[in-house]
Amino acid sequence: MMKSFIGRRAISSAVSLGGLIVLVFFLTRLTGDPTNLYLPLDAPMEARDNFRVLHGLNDPLIVQFGSYVYDVLHLDFGESIRKARPALEVVLEAFPWTLTLAVVTMGLVTLFAIIIGSLAAARVGGVFDRLSGIMSLIAASTPEFWVAIVGIFIFAVSLGWLPTSGTGTIWHWVLPITVLFIRPFGLILQVVRGSMISALSSPYVKTARAKGVRQRAIIFVHALRNGMLPVITVIGDQAAGMLNGAVVIETIFGFPGVGKLMIDSILQRDFSVVLASIMVTALAIFIMNLLIDLLYAVLDPRIRY
């Protein structure tokens, strides 16, 4: 049953990746001719033709597309025009930075959201519940790019406590992680609170209380597991959005991840790197969503059937 489920997910993801390949190919070609960027404006026509032939840009569009699909199916994304290296190699050098940033941030988001949301649900209407509700609404409504700019101005420029960009020390990670932390934390905290309120009002929780089980064990052992299913859905969605949407934050903080690499490659019309960046990110999101679906089955055996 599980193998059949994984097979169906793999097929649906392959179809989505196929559509993405077609979309990326034609959209990148709309950005313009790379020869105008990489060669001087007064370069002779012969030099322009040689450049196009070298990078396969002189063939008819349908021929370019056929070669492009064939190469992608063989995991060959071509060569980076800007770096004169295999595009996949360039992307795989940048991807661990984005993955580390996303994993660390989502780990902190999940930990704090579950703890605060569970404690808020334990005393609905209390001071802690009200404060956490206000905090979650503000966090979920705050645009990340604005927080990034304000954070740089206050903590890097005015106070000089943190560096503005780079990855040299642990302090270089503080602002990017903090900015990426805020919005997912607000959203997940709201879902944890609502889910835990429902779980804590269930009959099995009332039975545990009647048996004298401690409040902490009721919240974090009995209720949390049953309240986690909707939370995992939101965590997966936010994690995928973080992998896919760290472009702005990486660009603002000069973070050497896939997001910044993709923006630079689009501006420099480095088609091969753009394609490789999108495909690697899409594959990572597919694997993550598959793992989340498998986690559903672990938490609730009924889902397996």
Rank of each mutant, 00 (worst) to 15 (best):
L224G: 10
P184I: 07
A276R: 14
P184S: 08
A199Q: 15
T31I: 13
F271S: 07
G151D: 00
R302T: 03
G7K: 06
V298Q: 11
D237G: 08
T28D: 06
L137Y: 01
G151I: 06
F26I: 15
A297T: 13
F255W: 15
G259Y: 02
L189R: 03
L41W: 02
L261Q: 09
S67H: 11
L175S: 03
T142E: 05
E250R: 01
L295H: 04
S195L: 07
I218P: 00
M106S: 01
A297V: 14
V274R: 02
I182G: 01
V127T: 09
A113I: 05
D59H: 00
L108Q: 04
V191Y: 03
A148W: 04
I116L: 09
L37W: 10
T167W: 07
A14N: 11
I116A: 15
V124R: 14
I115K: 07
K211V: 04
T105S: 13
T35M: 05
F153Y: 12
Y296D: 02
V234T: 06
L187I: 02
V280K: 07
W161C: 08
I218E: 10
F95R: 07
P163Q: 02
H74W: 03
A120T: 00
A102T: 12
I11H: 02
S165T: 12
Q215A: 12
P44E: 11
E79Y: 15
N289M: 14
L41T: 09
F77C: 04
R302W: 07
A47N: 13
R214W: 05
A43Q: 06
A102W: 01
F286S: 13
S136L: 04
A240K: 09
F65I: 06
A223T: 14
I149Q: 13
I62V: 10
S13K: 00
I170S: 11
S195W: 08
P176H: 12
V63D: 01
T178W: 04
V174T: 04
T98A: 00
I197L: 11
P256C: 08
L290F: 07
Q238A: 14
K3H: 05
F286H: 05
V247W: 02
I266Y: 10
A120W: 09
E79T: 12
F95P: 04
T110W: 01
D264H: 11
I149Y: 10
V234D: 00
Y38C: 00
I6V: 14
I62D: 03
R29Q: 12
N226P: 07
G66N: 04
H74R: 11
A148N: 07
